[in-house]
């Protein structure tokens, strides 16, 4: 190892607390960028649904017919009257933040991102079940959110599978 290399390593150790921990491989970077982009779509969708919910019963019948029954159902509200869509918006924003940080090399963001997307996937599957079997009505904007979450999960799982190759290339 040359002197220059050693100096760089020392600098890396010194900055470890605050600096990005690693330079992302091309595959990982692409995955995180796609995840961030997808989460923006989810965020916009969830915000739209939140607006509908917060604006109250008045927009239930004035905006989109497909979502009337779904958004008017008790399942659309969390205990305390918080619309589920607001939680969705928060989750998508968190995904965007973590994916962006991960894309810029903040390695610690990867684990919470994976856990969050796994939780969102479980919630999405539960909501799809509710729409299909309990309410027997589908809300197109809720389905868009489901598609985004499923895509997020697919992207992150695909990235994990490819990680072995990445590691080989860079290790």
């Amino acid at each position: 190892m040359s002197t220059i290399d050693r100096a760089t390593d020392a600098g890396a150790v010194k900055n470890r607390e605050t600096a990005p921990e690693r330079v992302e491989s091309k595959g990982s970077l692409t995955a995180f960028v796609i995840a961030a982009a997808l989460s923006l779509v989810g965020l916009a969708d969830a915000l739209y649904l939140t607006v509908q919910h917060v604006a109250g019963r008045s927009v239930r019948c004035t905006v989109i017919t497909g979502c009337d029954e779904v958004l008017a159902s008790p399942y659309a509200v969390l205990p305390g009257g918080v619309p589920l869509a607001a939680l969705g918006a928060l989750a998508y924003f968190a995904v965007f933040s973590l994916a962006t940080l991960a894309a810029f090399g903040y390695g610690w963001a990867r684990a919470p991102l994976a856990v969050l997307v796994a939780l969102m996937l479980a919630t999405t599957l539960g909501l799809l079940y509710l729409q299909a079997f309990i309410l027997e009505k589908f809300c197109e904007f809720c389905l868009l959110s489901a598609a985004v979450t499923l895509s997020l999960a697919v992207v992150l799982i695909a990235k994990r599978r490819l990680r072995g190759d990445d590691g080989g290339a860079h290790g």
Binding site: G56, R57, S58, R60, T62, G81
Partner: peptide, 18 residues
Amino acid sequence: TGTPTLFLNGREMTLPSS
């Protein structure tokens, strides 16, 4: 702006979601 909207003795009611 939408339906159903209820007025009770002339006052518009904002019904909670739950």
